[in-house]
Protein backbone atom coordinates (compact mmCIF):
# COMPACT_ATOMS: atom_id res chain seq x y z
CA UNK A 1 0.00 0.00 0.00
CA UNK A 2 1.45 3.34 -0.97
CA UNK A 3 0.60 6.35 1.11
CA UNK A 4 -0.70 9.46 -0.55
CA UNK A 5 -1.05 12.94 0.88
CA UNK A 6 -4.51 12.37 2.28
CA UNK A 7 -3.38 9.22 4.11
CA UNK A 8 -0.61 11.16 5.77
CA UNK A 9 -3.00 13.96 6.62
CA UNK A 10 -5.36 11.47 8.27
CA UNK A 11 -2.58 9.99 10.38
CA UNK A 12 -1.32 13.46 11.26
CA UNK A 13 -4.80 14.51 12.31
CA UNK A 14 -5.09 11.46 14.53
CA UNK A 15 -1.70 12.09 16.11
CA UNK A 16 -2.46 15.74 16.79
CA UNK A 17 -5.85 14.98 18.34
CA UNK A 18 -4.26 12.30 20.48
CA UNK A 19 -1.42 14.46 21.73
CA UNK A 20 -3.59 17.54 22.22
CA UNK A 21 -6.20 15.59 24.19
CA UNK A 22 -4.83 16.16 27.71
CA UNK A 23 -4.37 19.88 27.00
CA UNK A 24 -7.85 20.56 25.67
CA UNK A 25 -10.64 22.02 27.80
CA UNK A 26 -13.16 19.38 28.78
CA UNK A 27 -16.03 20.86 26.78
CA UNK A 28 -13.91 20.60 23.68
CA UNK A 29 -12.93 17.03 24.44
CA UNK A 30 -16.63 16.15 24.80
CA UNK A 31 -17.53 17.85 21.57
CA UNK A 32 -14.69 16.23 19.66
CA UNK A 33 -15.52 12.88 21.16
CA UNK A 34 -19.15 12.96 20.03
CA UNK A 35 -18.09 14.28 16.63
CA UNK A 36 -15.65 11.44 16.16
CA UNK A 37 -18.32 8.85 17.04
CA UNK A 38 -20.77 10.48 14.65
CA UNK A 39 -18.09 10.99 12.04
CA UNK A 40 -17.26 7.30 12.05
CA UNK A 41 -20.90 6.45 11.38
CA UNK A 42 -21.07 9.05 8.65
CA UNK A 43 -17.95 7.63 7.01
CA UNK A 44 -20.13 4.60 6.38
CA UNK A 45 -22.99 6.74 5.09
CA UNK A 46 -20.53 8.38 2.73
CA UNK A 47 -19.40 5.03 1.36
CA UNK A 48 -23.01 4.12 0.59
CA UNK A 49 -23.64 7.51 -0.97
CA UNK A 50 -20.65 7.01 -3.25
CA UNK A 51 -22.68 4.08 -4.60
CA UNK A 52 -25.70 6.32 -4.99
CA UNK A 53 -27.44 4.76 -2.00
CA UNK A 54 -28.95 6.52 1.00
CA UNK A 55 -29.86 4.48 4.05
CA UNK A 56 -32.63 5.80 6.21
CA UNK A 57 -32.00 3.11 8.79
CA UNK A 58 -28.36 3.26 9.74
CA UNK A 59 -29.44 3.89 13.29
CA UNK A 60 -29.92 0.13 13.31
CA UNK A 61 -26.18 -0.49 13.33
CA UNK A 62 -25.39 2.48 15.51
CA UNK A 63 -27.79 1.01 18.06
CA UNK A 64 -26.68 -2.59 17.58
CA UNK A 65 -23.08 -1.54 18.13
CA UNK A 66 -24.02 0.33 21.27
CA UNK A 67 -26.12 -2.53 22.65
CA UNK A 68 -23.40 -5.05 21.82
CA UNK A 69 -21.03 -2.92 23.88
CA UNK A 70 -23.60 -2.46 26.62
CA UNK A 71 -24.48 -6.12 26.88
CA UNK A 72 -20.84 -7.05 27.20
CA UNK A 73 -20.79 -4.94 30.34
CA UNK A 74 -24.24 -5.81 31.60
CA UNK A 75 -24.57 -9.52 30.90
CA UNK A 76 -21.08 -10.87 30.42
CA UNK A 77 -19.46 -8.52 32.93
CA UNK A 78 -16.63 -7.73 30.56
CA UNK A 79 -16.50 -3.94 30.57
CA UNK A 80 -13.43 -3.69 28.37
CA UNK A 81 -13.44 -0.90 25.80
CA UNK A 82 -11.60 -2.80 23.10
CA UNK A 83 -13.75 -5.88 23.58
CA UNK A 84 -16.82 -3.67 23.36
CA UNK A 85 -15.79 -2.26 20.01
CA UNK A 86 -14.87 -5.76 18.88
CA UNK A 87 -18.29 -7.06 19.88
CA UNK A 88 -19.89 -4.21 17.94
CA UNK A 89 -17.88 -5.08 14.85
CA UNK A 90 -18.86 -8.74 15.03
CA UNK A 91 -22.55 -8.13 15.67
CA UNK A 92 -23.00 -5.43 13.03
CA UNK A 93 -20.89 -7.39 10.56
CA UNK A 94 -23.02 -10.50 10.91
CA UNK A 95 -26.38 -8.72 10.90
CA UNK A 96 -25.50 -6.52 7.94
CA UNK A 97 -24.11 -9.46 5.98
CA UNK A 98 -27.52 -11.11 6.30
CA UNK A 99 -29.72 -8.05 5.78
CA UNK A 100 -27.39 -6.88 3.03
CA UNK A 101 -28.30 -9.92 0.96
CA UNK A 102 -31.84 -8.56 0.83
CA UNK A 103 -31.03 -4.87 0.66
CA UNK A 104 -28.40 -5.07 -2.07
CA UNK A 105 -31.16 -5.56 -4.63
CA UNK A 106 -32.91 -2.32 -3.65
CA UNK A 107 -32.24 1.22 -4.77
CA UNK A 108 -33.40 4.74 -4.20
CA UNK A 109 -36.43 5.21 -2.08
CA UNK A 110 -36.99 1.47 -1.72
CA UNK A 111 -33.57 0.98 -0.19
CA UNK A 112 -34.30 3.87 2.14
CA UNK A 113 -37.66 2.40 3.14
CA UNK A 114 -36.50 -1.19 3.65
CA UNK A 115 -33.54 -0.06 5.72
CA UNK A 116 -35.94 2.13 7.68
CA UNK A 117 -38.19 -0.88 8.29
CA UNK A 118 -35.27 -2.95 9.60
CA UNK A 119 -34.20 -0.22 11.99
CA UNK A 120 -37.77 0.20 13.24
CA UNK A 121 -38.04 -3.56 13.82
CA UNK A 122 -35.14 -3.30 16.24
CA UNK A 123 -36.78 -0.26 17.81
CA UNK A 124 -40.04 -2.18 18.22
CA UNK A 125 -38.17 -5.04 19.87
CA UNK A 126 -36.11 -2.90 22.22
CA UNK A 127 -38.92 -0.73 23.53
CA UNK A 128 -40.74 -3.85 24.66
CA UNK A 129 -37.76 -5.65 26.14
CA UNK A 130 -38.05 -4.98 29.84
CA UNK A 131 -34.81 -6.77 30.67
CA UNK A 132 -32.94 -4.18 28.60
CA UNK A 133 -34.75 -1.28 30.20
CA UNK A 134 -37.35 -0.84 27.46
CA UNK A 135 -37.54 2.80 26.36
CA UNK A 136 -35.22 3.88 29.18
CA UNK A 137 -32.31 1.74 28.06
CA UNK A 138 -29.49 1.22 30.55
CA UNK A 139 -26.13 2.55 31.64
CA UNK A 140 -22.86 1.41 30.20
CA UNK A 141 -19.48 1.78 31.83
CA UNK A 142 -16.14 0.68 30.48
CA UNK A 143 -13.53 0.01 33.12
CA UNK A 144 -10.59 -1.52 31.30
CA UNK A 145 -8.77 -1.22 27.99
CA UNK A 146 -7.30 -4.46 26.65
CA UNK A 147 -7.42 -5.78 30.18
CA UNK A 148 -5.66 -2.82 31.82
CA UNK A 149 -7.70 -1.00 34.42
CA UNK A 150 -8.23 2.67 33.81
CA UNK A 151 -8.26 5.03 36.74
CA UNK A 152 -11.61 6.82 37.06
CA UNK A 153 -10.03 10.26 36.67
CA UNK A 154 -8.42 9.37 33.33
CA UNK A 155 -11.53 7.61 32.10
CA UNK A 156 -12.78 10.48 29.93
CA UNK A 157 -9.46 11.00 28.27
CA UNK A 158 -9.15 7.29 27.61
CA UNK A 159 -12.56 7.15 25.94
CA UNK A 160 -11.66 10.17 23.85
CA UNK A 161 -8.32 8.71 22.81
CA UNK A 162 -10.01 5.52 21.79
CA UNK A 163 -12.47 7.47 19.66
CA UNK A 164 -9.56 9.29 18.01
CA UNK A 165 -7.79 6.02 17.26
CA UNK A 166 -10.83 4.26 15.83
CA UNK A 167 -11.99 7.23 13.78
CA UNK A 168 -8.48 7.69 12.40
CA UNK A 169 -8.07 4.04 11.54
CA UNK A 170 -11.53 3.93 9.96
CA UNK A 171 -10.88 7.03 7.87
CA UNK A 172 -7.47 5.73 6.86
CA UNK A 173 -8.79 2.42 5.62
CA UNK A 174 -11.84 3.90 3.97
CA UNK A 175 -9.61 6.33 2.13
CA UNK A 176 -7.37 3.61 0.74
CA UNK A 177 -10.44 1.54 -0.11
CA UNK A 178 -11.95 4.43 -2.06
CA UNK A 179 -8.65 5.18 -3.77
CA UNK A 180 -8.55 1.63 -5.06
CA UNK A 181 -10.58 0.06 -7.85
CA UNK A 182 -13.45 -0.30 -5.37
CA UNK A 183 -13.87 3.45 -5.11
CA UNK A 184 -14.09 3.90 -8.87
CA UNK A 185 -16.48 0.97 -9.07
CA UNK A 186 -18.73 2.64 -6.51
CA UNK A 187 -18.92 5.75 -8.68
CA UNK A 188 -19.64 3.60 -11.70
CA UNK A 189 -22.48 1.87 -9.86
CA UNK A 190 -23.92 5.23 -8.96
CA UNK A 191 -23.78 6.34 -12.59
CA UNK A 192 -24.87 3.25 -14.47
CA UNK A 193 -25.44 -0.17 -12.96
CA UNK A 194 -26.36 -1.73 -16.26
CA UNK A 195 -22.98 -0.91 -17.73
CA UNK A 196 -21.17 -2.20 -14.67
CA UNK A 197 -22.88 -5.56 -15.11
CA UNK A 198 -22.06 -5.45 -18.82
CA UNK A 199 -18.43 -4.90 -17.93
CA UNK A 200 -18.52 -8.11 -15.96
CA UNK A 201 -18.78 -6.99 -12.34
CA UNK A 202 -21.52 -7.92 -9.90
CA UNK A 203 -23.29 -4.80 -8.70
CA UNK A 204 -25.04 -6.79 -5.97
CA UNK A 205 -21.78 -8.10 -4.59
CA UNK A 206 -20.17 -4.66 -4.60
CA UNK A 207 -23.17 -3.05 -2.92
CA UNK A 208 -23.32 -5.85 -0.37
CA UNK A 209 -19.67 -5.46 0.49
CA UNK A 210 -19.99 -1.70 0.86
CA UNK A 211 -23.14 -2.08 2.92
CA UNK A 212 -21.37 -4.38 5.39
CA UNK A 213 -18.41 -2.01 5.65
CA UNK A 214 -20.71 0.94 6.27
CA UNK A 215 -22.67 -1.03 8.88
CA UNK A 216 -19.51 -2.00 10.73
CA UNK A 217 -18.40 1.64 10.75
CA UNK A 218 -21.79 2.58 12.21
CA UNK A 219 -21.38 -0.19 14.78
CA UNK A 220 -17.97 1.11 15.83
CA UNK A 221 -19.45 4.60 16.11
CA UNK A 222 -22.29 3.21 18.24
CA UNK A 223 -20.01 1.35 20.62
CA UNK A 224 -17.77 4.40 21.03
CA UNK A 225 -20.84 6.53 21.65
CA UNK A 226 -22.09 4.09 24.30
CA UNK A 227 -18.90 4.30 26.36
CA UNK A 228 -18.67 8.00 25.72
CA UNK A 229 -22.18 8.90 26.90
CA UNK A 230 -22.38 6.06 29.38
CA UNK A 231 -25.99 5.39 28.53
CA UNK A 232 -27.86 3.74 25.66
CA UNK A 233 -31.52 3.54 24.73
CA UNK A 234 -33.71 2.53 21.77
CA UNK A 235 -33.78 6.09 20.41
CA UNK A 236 -30.48 5.16 18.79
CA UNK A 237 -32.40 3.14 16.23
CA UNK A 238 -35.46 5.40 16.03
CA UNK A 239 -35.79 6.94 12.58
CA UNK A 240 -34.90 10.54 13.48
CA UNK A 241 -31.48 9.28 14.59
CA UNK A 242 -30.95 7.71 11.16
CA UNK A 243 -32.21 10.94 9.64
CA UNK A 244 -29.56 12.81 11.58
CA UNK A 245 -26.84 10.65 10.03
CA UNK A 246 -28.22 11.38 6.59
CA UNK A 247 -28.26 15.03 7.55
CA UNK A 248 -24.59 15.05 8.53
CA UNK A 249 -23.67 13.13 5.39
CA UNK A 250 -25.44 15.70 3.20
CA UNK A 251 -23.92 18.54 5.16
CA UNK A 252 -20.44 17.04 4.78
CA UNK A 253 -20.44 15.89 1.21
CA UNK A 254 -18.76 12.76 -0.09
CA UNK A 255 -15.64 14.30 -1.61
CA UNK A 256 -13.13 13.06 0.96
CA UNK A 257 -13.00 11.05 4.16
CA UNK A 258 -12.26 14.32 5.91
CA UNK A 259 -15.71 15.55 4.94
CA UNK A 260 -17.71 13.29 7.30
CA UNK A 261 -15.34 13.91 10.19
CA UNK A 262 -15.34 17.66 9.66
CA UNK A 263 -19.07 17.67 8.92
CA UNK A 264 -19.78 15.84 12.16
CA UNK A 265 -17.79 18.45 14.05
CA UNK A 266 -19.67 21.29 12.39
CA UNK A 267 -22.93 19.52 13.14
CA UNK A 268 -22.00 19.01 16.77
CA UNK A 269 -21.01 22.67 17.03
CA UNK A 270 -24.28 23.87 15.51
CA UNK A 271 -26.20 21.54 17.76
CA UNK A 272 -24.40 22.49 20.97
CA UNK A 273 -24.65 26.22 20.37
CA UNK A 274 -28.18 26.18 19.04
CA UNK A 275 -29.19 23.92 21.92
CA UNK A 276 -27.53 26.16 24.44
CA UNK A 277 -28.97 29.42 23.18
CA UNK A 278 -32.43 28.31 22.13
CA UNK A 279 -33.31 24.75 23.02
CA UNK A 280 -36.65 24.98 21.24
CA UNK A 281 -35.34 26.00 17.87
CA UNK A 282 -32.19 23.98 17.37
CA UNK A 283 -33.94 21.54 15.06
CA UNK A 284 -35.19 24.49 13.07
CA UNK A 285 -31.63 25.73 12.74
CA UNK A 286 -30.59 22.29 11.53
CA UNK A 287 -33.47 22.11 9.06
CA UNK A 288 -32.69 25.52 7.60
CA UNK A 289 -28.98 24.70 7.40
CA UNK A 290 -29.83 21.49 5.59
CA UNK A 291 -32.04 23.26 3.07
CA UNK A 292 -29.40 25.93 2.45
CA UNK A 293 -26.71 23.31 1.95
CA UNK A 294 -28.88 21.30 -0.42
CA UNK A 295 -29.76 24.36 -2.47
CA UNK A 296 -26.47 26.23 -2.53
CA UNK A 297 -23.88 23.51 -1.85
CA UNK A 298 -25.13 20.27 -3.38
CA UNK A 299 -21.65 18.82 -2.86
CA UNK A 300 -21.77 19.58 0.86
CA UNK A 301 -19.35 21.67 2.89
CA UNK A 302 -16.46 19.76 1.38
CA UNK A 303 -17.13 21.34 -2.00
CA UNK A 304 -16.06 24.67 -0.50
CA UNK A 305 -12.53 23.32 -0.30
CA UNK A 306 -12.37 21.70 -3.70
CA UNK A 307 -13.84 24.80 -5.34
CA UNK A 308 -11.15 26.97 -3.86
CA UNK A 309 -8.45 24.60 -4.97
CA UNK A 310 -9.71 24.54 -8.55
CA UNK A 311 -10.37 28.26 -8.78
Amino acid sequence: MKLDRTSFAILAMGAILLIAGPALPSWMVSMLNVSLCYGTVVLGMMLLMRNGIVSFGHGLYFCLGAYAAGLLDQMLKMPDMLLMVGAAVVVTGVVSAILGLLLAKYRDIFFAMLSLAFSMILYGLLVKTASLGSTDGFNVAAKTVAGFAVAPESQRLMVYSLAVVFATVSAFFLHSYLASHQGRLAGAIKDNELRVEYMGASVMRAVHRNYVISAVLAGIGGALMAVNIGHIDPEMTYWPQSGEFVFVAILSGTGSVFAPLGGALVFEAIRSFAYEYSPNTWQMVLGITMLLVMIFLPGGLWSLFTRKREG
Binding site: H181, R184, G187
Partner: peptide, 19 residues
Protein backbone atom coordinates in the same frame (compact mmCIF):
# COMPACT_ATOMS: atom_id res chain seq x y z
CA UNK B 1 -24.40 3.52 -21.49
CA UNK B 2 -21.62 5.54 -19.92
CA UNK B 3 -20.54 6.59 -16.45
CA UNK B 4 -21.66 10.12 -17.03
CA UNK B 5 -20.13 11.87 -14.04
CA UNK B 6 -16.73 10.27 -14.56
CA UNK B 7 -13.95 11.18 -16.96
CA UNK B 8 -13.42 9.28 -20.20
CA UNK B 9 -10.26 7.80 -18.72
CA UNK B 10 -12.08 6.61 -15.61
CA UNK B 11 -14.89 5.14 -17.68
CA UNK B 12 -12.38 2.76 -19.21
CA UNK B 13 -10.35 2.25 -16.03
CA UNK B 14 -13.47 0.82 -14.39
CA UNK B 15 -13.38 -1.94 -16.98
CA UNK B 16 -9.66 -2.50 -16.52
CA UNK B 17 -10.19 -2.73 -12.77
CA UNK B 18 -12.96 -5.26 -13.16
CA UNK B 19 -10.85 -7.44 -15.43
Amino acid sequence: QLFNTMTVLDNLLVGVGIV
